[in-house]
Design a protein around this nucleic acid. Structure first.
Lengths: 227, 227
DNA sequence: CGCAGGCTTGACGTCCTTCAACCGTTGTGG
DNA sequence: CCACAACGGTTGAAGGACGTCAAGCCTGCG
């Protein structure tokens, strides 16, 4: 019986070292490991930037707040992802752990100092900034012009690429997180998922609503037609 | 009689030379001037990246298309702004002139080559990428969680900073452009503007609906409460 | 057990879209 | 020169997609 395959995009780097942020030629940067419990804040909006992070295990969300209790989530970061790498003086989003999470972090100054003498590292930083920008641009399109169904489909496709293992997509985020990421309400997200289940495109697993099996990725992709 | 002042933010660079993209130490980069007529396409989505541009005069829009005739505008660029500076191989947006526009452009390779030996230039590129990212993040919040009124107010505030002269805000874009930028329809944009006029927050000038005087910036800012 | 948090589902409300009519300006060809 | 189509904008009426409100289920936990 064939193993259900995730629709794997290009594999992403797994450690600061592999990515080139740390390398044998940069022995000056010290790496330390930190643990955050579910729901705790790693840093908050407008806080001065001290560290750059990489998720070792777990998952985090970056968010902003508006009046009237409105919340917006800009991105999710899971194992392997970098975050906190911004080019201003202060953070533009707050960052919270969605589940118990282990991160690696390095002082931002040491990174800057290392980049000073290392063109490769600088290009890596530029490439990462471009990756973030590309994601943000796609997400603007989603928020500005897509229907609720297209948004949820796009979300599932994105998460499937990133964290499906052994055929199971184990989402670390709540319906509220998903809603605030997609610019919807929890009810609309829930209804969209129920509808996808009724269509046979996905299945819920066990008694946890956060474990999902994507049955028909083709059809799912069809629901988020980019063109 | 006091001159009405634009709520000027930090002044932006005015030429590639001032910005540092071109400098006396980079005599290798050749600069050329190009003109595009209203409505013409400067480059299109998925086209290989050849040049990096700066608007000399006029204004351009970056846009994407979806099925069903849906359009999304990611950003507007006016005199002084850079565009086309992406880090992939191909453009992620198409770029069109909204009015007759003159641009300066340099070959992307010559820029890359110059950056190779010039840490300052590289840092400038990083800074520009960060600026774009910051704008995209703010815009995601707008598209995901703001009401139509808040969006239009935010739009006016943004454009006021960039192109109000002598107290008059002369918009280069149509209602459709504004709508596709804000994730709304032209009718909703028009109604919001009419409502602002009724409230005495702005006035239309002459017989062009694109020339506006902002009467009460304070009140306008109040309609787009970030918090 | 009792309570809180997360999810689903239904009924209803609303903000924005859709559809349509109309106006003024621009530009174009007879 | 003028008729008239094309374009951009405004406004009203009706509709719909998503939001709001509410009830109920399930699980985990003190």
């Amino acid at each position: 019986m064939p193993m259900p395959q995730t629709s794997a995009s290009l594999p992403r780097p797994h450690t600061l070292i592999e990515f080139g942020i740390l390398s044998a030629s940069n022995p000056t940067i010290s790496l330390s490991e930190f643990t955050y419990t579910r729901g705790s804040e790693i840093y908050s909006e407008k806080e001065p930037i001290e560290f750059v992070y990489q998720v070792k295990s777990g998952a985090v969300r970056s968010c902003k707040l508006l009046s009237g209790g409105r919340r917006h989530i800009g991105a999710f970061h899971v194992a392997g992802d970098f975050f906190g790498l911004e080019n201003g003086d202060v953070h533009r989003f707050s960052m919270e752990a969605m589940v118990d999470t282990i991160v690696h972090r390095v002082r931002r100054e040491s990174l800057d100092a290392a980049a000073e003498n290392d063109g490769t590292l600088t290009r890596d930083l530029l490439r990462m900034a471009a990756t973030n920008l590309g994601h943000a641009e796609d997400h603007m399109l989603l928020l500005g012009r897509k229907t609720s169904m297209e948004r949820v489909a796009a979300f599932l496709i994105e998460m499937d690429k990133r964290l499906t293992t052994a055929g199971i997509l184990a989402l670390p985020m709540t319906r509220r997180d998903i809603a605030d990421y997609l610019g919807l309400t929890i009810e609309t997200v829930s209804r969209s998922l129920s509808h996808l289940r009724e269509l046979g495109i996905l299945r819920f697993i066990d008694n946890s609503q956060r474990h999902i099996v994507l049955v028909d990725r083709q059809q799912l992709a069809g629901l988020d037609r980019q063109n």
